[in-house]
């Protein structure tokens, strides 16, 4: 409760901090925020060429199959990779003034969310151009985005605080994210995994989030709501745990940095 009161009091700082992170990302580049479009488009182009033509993946309309999952994955990937440096990058103000430190991971995830929402224009445009369009299942989309936001925030809390003590994490996480990418059905369908391994794969929360995106946008069907609500509960628990870890660690930030 005290946290929410403080966050409300410092809301202006939260806003400036999100704005700074969002704008600062492309500040020195010519194309600016346009990179939010160009980057995923180019990445998409690479995968859309490599998989159907070189690797011979037999999926109908593979580019669309990819668009709806790759952009949400990028949101997750960017958040996690940046989370390891959020606290360290702000060491200047942490050592000088008091403010609720939670603002830093929150603004990391939120600025990436804004970035994601902008990139969503690509998804919508692609859905219309390809003729798939948007079905009524779209109403479930905000729940999935919320779910992903909570999950990312929980991870961001944990990684940002622990990296202050163990700086290696920063390098380890970038490799881990590559592995995580291939263990998540972004480029393929979960049904391509042999049934005996499926149970292990299902332990990965991103499997369900990414599958839900594909169900809603590509197949235009209702995602498995039982799984989604179970995940929502699990992620909230993880967020509480993440906040607890962050809270334990933050007391010594000023001394360790």
């Amino acid at each position: 409760m005290k946290l929410f009161k403080e966050l409300y009091q410092y809301r202006e700082f939260l806003k400036t901090s999100i704005r700074k992170e969002f704008r600062g990302k492309y500040k020195k580049s010519f194309l600016g925020v346009l990179w939010s479009f160009i980057n995923p488009l180019l990445q998409l182009l690479v995968y859309a060429l490599v998989f159907p033509f070189i690797m011979r993946v037999q999926v109908e309309n593979y580019t669309m199959f990819l668009v709806v999952t790759l952009i949400p994955w990028n949101f997750f990937n960017a958040t996690v990779c940046q989370s390891t440096s959020t606290i360290i990058a702000s060491s200047g103000i942490i050592k000088k003034v008091y403010f609720p430190r939670e603002i830093l991971p929150i603004s990391n995830v939120t600025s990436n969310l804004l970035n994601f929402l902008i990139s969503c224009i690509i998804i919508v445009a692609a859905l219309f151009i390809s003729g798939i369009g948007i079905g009524p299942s779209i109403i479930y989309l905000p729940i999935i985005v919320l779910l992903q936001y909570i999950f990312s925030l929980a991870i961001s809390f944990i990684l940002s605080s622990i990296t202050v003590y163990i700086r290696d994490l920063e390098y380890f996480v970038s490799v881990l994210m590559m592995l995580w990418f291939y263990l998540t059905p972004v480029l393929y369908e979960i049904t391509m995994i042999p049934a005996k391994f499926r149970a292990i794969f299902n332990l990965n929360p991103m499997v369900h989030i990414i599958t839900a995106y594909r169900d809603i946008l590509y197949y235009q069907k209702t995602p498995d709501m039982l799984v989604i609500f179970g995940m929502l509960g699990g992620c909230i628990l993880l967020l509480v745990l993440g906040y607890f870890i962050f809270n334990k660690c933050e007391k010594k930030f000023a001394e360790e940095l």
Partner: peptide, 26 residues
């Protein structure tokens, strides 16, 4: 304790007043 926390050199004095004061919780 240390003046000018959160000051950003590329922004104007006026903008920095907003940055700095927001860190103080305004």
């Amino acid at each position: 304790l240390e003046l000018g926390a959160g000051f950003h050199p590329d922004f104007s004095g006026r903008e920095n007043i907003y940055f700095n004061a927001s860190i103080f919780g305004l």
